[in-house]
Amino acid sequence: MLKVSNLHAGIEGNEILRGINLEVKPGEVHAIMGPNGSGKSTLSAVIAGREDYEVTEGHIDFNHEDIADLAPEERAHKGIFLSFQYPIEIPGVTVTNFLKTSINEMRKAQGLEPMKANEMLKKMREKMELLEMDKGFLSRSLNEGFSGGEKKRNEIFQMAMLEPKLAILDETDSGLDIDALRIVANGVNKLKSPENATIVITHYQRLLEHIVPDFVHVLYKGRIVKSGRKELALELESKGYDWIKEELAV
């Protein structure tokens, strides 16, 4: 589904990603871990198409198509979803209207008619229940005044509504208390299918207790320096990232 090969990318001439290789197949959950500043968020932004970053070398293929030159919205239309580490507050646009616009633009790109209002409402109710969200939430301005937990829940709610092929969860666990973490993780797990894939980007192991990865990759200084099964995450948790740094120094 996603094939990243020898990806180099940076911002304003500073190289942050220095040759990433990553392959994600349908049905898989990949975790990308790494210390602060290792390039985790850059990787997710580059896959999602943030234009501030410049890809200097390598490829990003999505379903056998090079997407490096596509605008963020075109990547979204192909089924890539990025859950933001820091969801943006947009005063004046309600959650409902944002979702309505988002869904209908996605449908437009696929040559479909706008979704019927009652159909949309039904789907919203269903997904909100999944994430244990309150109805009143729909008429609030997008992310404005939301708590950290509400923002993340809202991200996963949007993901549930948009049903992406590839979901990238960028530090979805940050700012969540244990209950919210459970609800969010539960939501993600329920949305999993053999056709879609998930990349979980996280600093800590604790999210991976709830969303169990098939593969764990360690990102350090812009490269994936170690890959393994879910046990790698536990090892990282007990030994810390210094262990990796030392191993690399040898």
Partner: peptide, 29 residues
Amino acid sequence: NEDAMFYMQARGIPAKEAKALLLYAFAND
């Protein structure tokens, strides 16, 4: 706000519409 633009585009809203929606939201009150 560039961050808001990217956020909306990442949710499939084309740049032109995202810009309009942001401006609309800005003016709306």
